[in-house]
Amino acid sequence: MKTRVTLTVNGQVHDVEIAPHYLLSDVLRDVVGLTATHVGCEQGVCGACTVLVDDRPARACLTFAIQMEGHEITTLEGLRDDPVTQALQQAFHERHALQCGFCTPGFLVTLSAWLKEATDPTPAAVRDLLTGNLCRCTGYQNIVEAVLSVAATECGR
């Protein structure tokens, strides 16, 4: 049943032995060993498992790992040196935009990609974007403020 698949995650090549029905979220966490990608619903709703596939946000729980051969996967671990992500992390820290932290990686990954192409990140646009990421702790207010503070300096660069 299992087959060998070559995955490129955060620029590193991993040869993994997996079954076709293994979800990317599980393979990243259990086989590749990167646990920043969290699993919150496996229904595509909560957004905690959001990763980048070829630099675009995607739900790892709605993707089979075997599909990813030939594609570049980026997880939060791979955005360590990304300036937009770093700015987001600092803003989240300063504005108390996380509590339990479980949803946070999904927010950061989604936002890091979005801020690079957002032209007019108004509060309404940020909130609309974030409907795809659920947070049960913060009430979103501090998250929105953190994003807007980063947008003020990062957008249009």
């Binding site: 957004g47 946000p57 995607a58 709605l62 979005w114 974007l129 795809g132």
Partner: peptide
């Protein structure tokens, strides 16, 4: 349609 991440796929 759906959310931003859904629209990417």
């Amino acid at each position: 349609i759906g959310y931003h991440a859904i629209r990417q796929r």
